[in-house]
């Protein structure tokens, strides 16, 4: 095992030499690349990366350009995780046979994918990777929508959000199903580490990524990724929206170790009402009409319930 990169504070972190480049085609203010930078900068080791089809992939690999300064592969929508798992298997085999050309190097295997590619279309592939015990990290860029194809709902889209396949209008308040609890599902594979992260809480996030790199076995990370285009907010507000997401507890930050031990890793000093989070985004605008206001109350109740559940889980140490 190589030594963990020391990142005491943000000044020290800022001495990192990025391995992700600008002049990619992501929208101004896109959180995907903020997440990617925090993951890549968490280590100095070599990286073997994949991206499933989606905004991150199409925007960072437009021929003749690549925005990646590390080995990177894209195959399809569903199989970014297995692409990296295959590379990891080959690495292990070469290591076993003493055929690694540079055995002193310790590459990290990371697969990046959207919520569409993780919660829905690549679900089975990721589940396979988790179950087979590959030494990989799967990072979900969770913008709660199929952003790259124009905003269709995924099983990560939350109730009341207006998506192009579940639009809000005269007869509907938009998405009717609640978001899938992917972190619990992946933790239930008994993997050494699963966690929810947010790029605004960079220290918590980098700590989790580093922990993920240090364990032996599959790691699952769900990262909230506010999308200026589909969530409908001004690009300058990406981090403000992320703050609202974590501080309203709509995106609670926690980790699950070995499939059962749950730790809450961030407790906001001032919990923000969910209403403020919803009000900041165009995709929830219609909820503020009189006939849909009851949904805001339901939202708050759901968030409170989940937070109470997480705290019970943490306390019980089961």
């Amino acid at each position: 095992m190589s030594e963990m990169k020391k990142i005491k504070n943000l000044k020290e972190f800022s001495t990192s030499a990025d391995r992700f480049e600008g002049a990619n085609l992501l929208c101004p203010g896109c959180a995907h690349s903020i997440i990617v930078r925090e993951v890549l900068n968490a280590t100095n080791d070599d990286m073997i990366l994949s991206a499933s089809t989606g905004c991150l992939e199409v925007c960072t690999a437009v021929y003749p350009y690549t925005s990646w300064d590390a080995s990177w592969i894209h195959i399809g929508f569903e199989n970014g995780s297995t692409a990296v798992a295959g590379a990891e298997s080959m690495y292990k085999a070469l290591k076993r046979k003493n055929r690694l050309k540079q055995p002193e190097r310790n590459p990290k295997f990371v697969s990046f994918a959207g919520d569409g590619a993780s919660y829905d279309i690549g679900f089975q592939w990721i589940s396979g990777c988790m179950e087979r015990g590959h030494n990989i990290m799967h990072v979900v860029l969770d913008n709660e929508v199929y952003a790259n194809t124009g905003g269709q709902r995924s099983s990560s889209t939350p109730i009341g959000s207006s998506a192009t396949t579940s639009p809000a209008g005269r007869v509907s308040y938009g998405e009717k199903k609640n978001k899938k609890d992917i972190v619990s599902i992946m933790a239930a594979h008994g993997i050494p580490y699963a966690a929810q992260v947010a790029p605004n809480k960079w220290k918590d996030m980098v700590k989790k990524i580093q922990h993920g790199f240090s364990v032996d076995g599959p790691v699952f990370i769900n990262a909230v990724s506010p999308c200026t285009t589909e969530w409908k907010f001004d690009p300058k507000d990406t981090m403000n929206i992320t703050d609202l997401a974590t501080d309203s507890l709509v995106f609670p930050l926690y980790e699950i170790i070995d499939g059962h031990e749950l730790n809450i890793t961030y407790r906001p000093k001032n919990i923000v009402p969910v209403e403020e989070y919803l009000a900041a985004q165009g995709r929830f605008k219609h909820l503020f009409k009189d006939e849909y206001k009851y949904l805001i109350k339901e939202w708050q109740d759901r968030v409170d319930e989940k937070w109470a559940y997480l705290q019970r889980r943490e306390e019980s140490r089961v």
């Binding site: 943000l10 000044k11 972190f13 800022s14 990025d18 992700f20 480049e21 600008g22 002049a23 990619n24 992501l26 101004p28 203010g29 896109c30 959180a31 995907h32 690349s33 903020i34 930078r37 925090e38 790029p199 605004n200 960079w202 990406t238 981090m239």
Partner: peptide, 12 residues
Amino acid sequence: DCQFCWIYCPDV
């Protein structure tokens, strides 16, 4: 030199 702008700039 707090580096908030460095870490949160999406475009390096």
